[in-house]
Design a binder for these strands. Structure first.
Lengths: 335, 335
DNA sequence: TTGTAGGCGTTATCAA
DNA sequence: TTGATAACGCCTACAA
């Protein structure tokens, strides 16, 4: 920077002003400085800058998953699930125009403390926290840290933190309504893990609506949000309840597996049994027949999380606020 | 830090030594300092540290994709393709023990300059560059930057840079051999994009081996590495060459689409036509029948990239070196 | 083994 | 509008 200042015949302070686009700089001087910058190939040092500005221009995307028995493939599952991919894509697209970068940090409870330490060290200006499971303590820990944060779903315990969510119960209701409208009368559902709020909410919403329509009880089986799980659960469900004619599966990945099981079992979809998924992820288009599903605008939601986070970063005292997106039904061929 | 020093009754220098685990510190004093750190809840400021150490303890994962006509879903495609997910998982697992974090940066040629600027600013200590297409100028730009870097495939133009790759031609040969051994005599292939070296190499390897076995020409159609593309190309291929009995598809995603097309066309796999994919990604297990495929150890390769990168970072002058992994054939049910 | 002191490259304050 | 100058928080010779 001294080089630039010397080359332009000004002080370092002026160089700094030009770089940061301060309005109070003479046009000619600005020009000279810019030329000097180009000539010297000067690049500001970000460490020095953030030392004084206390900004890093990056945010963390923390993906907090529950510990599962088969934990060895933890990273693999995360980075292969299209849901997280959509989150990453949405967040990236919102952050990029602001020149803010994304540090991706997958975690389970065994290394919460590492994550907390990382956040405390000021590596990032804020956190996008993807946390789905009920007993996850990370949202609270992050909140206590006082660092700007936005969570991907309504926290289970009441924490004063901003979050972005979709109306899960409404989504499940849309599915139920559609199945009834088609004429299905023997309904069942493969739920998500019930220690995950979205899993629970979708199940609740589905049941709650059906009970108002005269279906007080609905055969239910708990799945794990994976394709293989959906296939296995569909098999089990149909073994127990062979005459089901309408099935709500709590995410598309499981629905894809379920369709496969139904095909193997010789059930025609949607004629013998109609199937509705949840997400409208790319998996819905990989299904045969194409999957009718509840659309959750994940990319937009992630982008909104990023926007809210940037607002928090810009205005430290800002009160938390939550944004809820409306789901919609995407009718294709499976129901 | 002053607080800690005062609380422990030592100088800031000693506190610094304790934090950085310098050996020359009296055990008692170390103890006192650590207690003081715990009491005061002190956390080192990373910006100040990297200002003086010139280390950021993070590396960039730059995913450089070619510009495609349907570019609007660029981010989506990247983050939904299991290949990139596996890369991310592999790199993360290798980096985590060293407390190095990953900044994920997707890019196409329109924002190469942003990426270069980012790298020049010293945000990261090094770059893992995932670059697949032939005319990509980014590897050269990164090389010219002089920042430690490792590329995910052999560069097309000779650049003195470390890379990690799989023996693509050998993989294709394994597929060809297997198809011949099964008794297939009318072979064809759906290749990857031919402006991507891996696409070209797999095609070359396939053809080269077959020509030594008396199959001088093989019907070929160029695909795009997507599921939908695989399906469409398989349809077209079989319309032109209805009597194909052995098909090599240059990645699993396309193979999955191809299997679907074959099913729709009423061809039995593997009886009427045997299919071999490439990658051994999770998609191979989503296929019906389960996909016989050439295994590419992507996670291990990404981890190796990370290891090599860390070596470069630790030893600035280190000469570039390349690591080539051997592919292997995973025989399942489709061939 | 410990302390002192200088410097890393910016931005921000305050005069001029 | 511009220029000195003082932080920012840490590491690291060097001296004690």
């Amino acid at each position: 920077m001294d080089q630039v200042a010397e080359a332009a015949g000004v002080s370092r302070a002026t160089v700094s002003r030009v770089i940061n686009g301060a309005p109070s700089v003479d046009a000619k001087i600005r020009e000279m400085v810019q030329r000097a910058i180009a000539d010297t190939g000067y690049v500001p040092n970000v460490a020095a800058r953030s030392l004084v500005t206390r900004r890093s221009n990056s945010v963390a995307l923390v993906i907090s998953e529950p510990d599962r028995p088969d934990n060895h493939s933890f990273l693999n599952r995360i980075f292969t699930d299209p849901y997280f991919g959509r989150i990453t894509a949405g967040a990236t697209s919102a952050l990029r125009p602001h020149d803010i970068h994304l540090v991706v940090i997958p975690t389970d409870s065994t290394d919460h403390h590492q994550v907390v330490r990382y956040l405390r060290q000021g590596h990032v200006d804020g956190v996008l926290l993807i946390s789905s499971h009920e007993q996850d303590t990370l949202p609270r820990q992050v909140h206590d840290l006082g660092i700007p944060a936005v969570v991907s779903a309504r926290p289970t315990s009441p924490i004063a933190v901003s979050y972005v969510d979709v109306d899960q119960r409404l989504g499940a209701r849309l599915a139920a309504e559609h199945l009834l409208n088609r004429g299905c009368r023997t309904l069942a559902t493969i739920s998500g893990p019930l220690d995950i709020p979205s899993g629970l909410d979708r199940l609740d919403g589905f049941r709650a609506f059906l009970s108002t329509r005269g279906f007080p009880s609905v055969p239910t089986i708990e799945g794990d949000f994976t394709r293989a799980g959906g296939e296995a659960m569909a098999r089990r469900l149909l073994a127990q309840h062979p005459n089901i004619d309408g099935l709500f599966v709590a995410n598309d990945l499981m629905a894809e597996g379920a369709l496969r099981a139904l095909q193997d079992l010789g059930r025609r979809v949607p004629d013998d049994i109609a199937v509705v998924g949840f997400d409208d992820s790319s998996a819905a288009l990989d299904c045969r027949p194409l999957l009718t599903t509840v659309r959750q605008p994940v990319e937009e939601m992630a982008a909104e999380m990023a926007e809210v986070l940037m607002a928090h970063i810009a205005t430290p005292g800002r009160l938390p606020r939550s944004v809820t997106f409306q789901p919609s039904l995407v009718i294709r061929n499976s129901a």
